[in-house]
Design a protein around this nucleic acid. Structure first.
Lengths: 196, 196
DNA sequence: TAGCGCATGTAACGCGTTACATGATTAC
DNA sequence: GTAATCATGTAACGCGTTACATGCGCTA
């Protein structure tokens, strides 16, 4: 029954926590957060500004963030959000929960099941495009590692955590690149004997 | 403006195409499809039976699948779906479209940004759990490869496509496993100097 | 004067998950 | 009897995307 339990809407499973995580290092505005979610944390959990603003509203209503309006000169006012002690506690509780893997879904792998029935040329083109993209991503991640996370054993625990996320990204991209090479090696020969 | 355009609801971006892909090899019932999506194709694009039944309804309404009721003895009747020529064409068109990568979102990587602020013990436990899971998955995938996709160069093009999906899975799992080892190597030493 | 950066939102909609629901037959 | 397998659905809801919307100040 639970009369008068929580009327507040439930919060996004993880985005809310990702936002709170981004606020660990200090208060930020929605705009700043949106840019943060285009890089760094956003490499592993992307979010659009629309989603972020809605989430910030909910998090404030819930009491996990404290909003403060800041007047600026030459720029529009902004609203800066800070973690509250309750928010901090909620975040810690979430970190302690077991995470669920979400199986990554990829169109391309489904399309591969159509080889032999459909034309392979577009798939080859797509895999070549991905090879370029992964190679760019890999270069970016490796540059970041070289510049900020060299010698991980000597880093602070906090930076070690971030390093491990980056390391996951690097391994991921490298693997994807290698797979692209393998796939092209197998599919390119099929291009000659074209399809009906 | 487009008056009287399509009144039919838009179809699931990829699940509909995944279902049609599964029907390339012959007609199947919703139940059969649901089992298919627990293995093989489902390794790369999972779907629940609820989702599948709804999608089948839409695909039939759209004219991309043909439903036929089959009476059985000792078992409930079943509805078997087959690709129509229009469906087949739609599928081919989809394969030829460029795919969009969806950046995989993973709670765990976000949680790693909390190291140094929250307790690492639950993260270490989570990574150990994942190590076991990935290792099981890898063993499964490698068994399938050994049994059905040995010597990929000699396979038919259709099987080569499926092989490549499997190969992506194998590389993925291997990479994840290696990452788990690296992460545990870095985080386990932090367990002793425990947290406030 | 046109476009970009800063700054914040609303609305609609689709995909996916979770919970709930039914009912027959076969195997232990 | 009671659990598992076969077989098919409905309803609610939340996350995420896309499209749409506003308005100031600086630079080319």
């Amino acid at each position: 029954m639970q009369p008068f339990a929580y009327d507040l809407p439930c919060l996004a499973m993880a985005l809310s926590h990702a936002i709170m995580t981004a606020l660990l290092d200090g208060p930020l505005s929605g705009y700043d957060l949106a840019r943060e979610f285009d890089t760094s944390l956003g490499f592993f959990w992307h979010a659009s500004h629309q989603q972020i603003y809605q989430e910030l509203r909910k998090l404030s209503d819930q009491g996990w963030l404290q909003a403060r309006c800041i007047a600026q000169q030459g720029k529009p006012d902004k609203i800066v959000y800070a973690l509250t002690p309750t928010g901090r506690q909620t975040l810690d509780d979430w970190v302690a929960e077991p995470s669920k893997r979400k199986p990554a879904k990829d169109d391309l792998l489904v399309k591969l099941y159509n080889v032999g029935h459909s034309d392979v040329a577009p798939l080859v083109a797509e895999i070549r495009r991905r090879r370029e993209w992964h190679s760019g991503r890999l270069a970016l991640f490796e540059r970041i590692r070289r510049n900020h996370y060299d010698a991980p054993q000597r880093l602070s625990p906090h930076k070690q955590g971030i390093y491990l996320a980056l390391a996951a990204g690097i391994r991921q991209e490298r693997t994807s690149l290698e797979w692209c090479e393998e796939a092209l090696g197998l599919l390119e020969p099929l291009l000659r004997d074209a399809h009906p």
